[in-house]
Amino acid sequence: MRRPGPALLSWVEPRFFLLLTLSGLFSVVLRPRLLLNQLYSVGVLSFLIIFISGLFVGMVLGLQGYYILSDFGAEETLGLMVAASLVRELGPVVSALLFAGRAGSALTAEIGLMKATEQLSGMEMMAVDPIKRIIAPRLLAGLLSMPLLAGVFSTIGIIGGLLVGSGMLGVDDGAYWAQMQAKLDFYDDIVNGFIKSVVFGFVASWIALFEGYDAIPTSEGVSRATTRTVVNSAFSILGLDFILTALMFGDS
């Protein structure tokens, strides 16, 4: 695709940012190395925070759930409670919020700084399209990492709940798994949670990349853009979560 001239470009680019990025996704397939590097900085570096948060969220759910459920003599359903809340809501949402804070802010700062130090203009001078070279691999990396991170989060959370539930509070671990398997549905719960995490990953990376690309190229501008990334991502994730939940989990 031939890029339009600079005056038009400055008008077109922010408005059709997503479209340009999506059209650049095909060129990423030809350069897997770019994607691999971004998977490292977006996915691998977020892994530890997701792992540890997932563990603690699961353990807290185990504790709190046990206190409430034991009032009704229903401690056995602890596994279901922990797993359902993780798979449906907390897994996708909390990992997306952490993802926006950990990876999204880094993306914005990186691209904002590239813009401020005129690396992006430099690329254009060399006839390298920065959208294809810089933005598209990062969007794809975010899109791929987020479901994986959410899956790890939920898995570790369920194990954390089991550690607290059966290790500390004496819930039977057989019942923990059995209740979970009996009541969680693959399509209604797991697949819907997966769809949520894909949507959140897309939105969080999109916002982060756009804010970085659209940043005012000064140190203050980059700092503001980074803040906007985190704030806007958090809003969009929580708002979208409500909409998706309302659409997905009707009375079935």
Binding site: G43, P147, L148, S154, T155, I156, A182, F186, I190
Partner: peptide, 22 residues
């Protein structure tokens, strides 16, 4: 590390599908 990350993520999703749901 990227390979391990992707493998861990897919393992997590498999775990959720097979062990935690029906």
């Amino acid at each position: 590390l990227v390979g391990l990350f992707v493998a861990a993520g897919i393992a997590g999703l498999f775990f959720l599908s097979l062990k935690a749901s029906n």
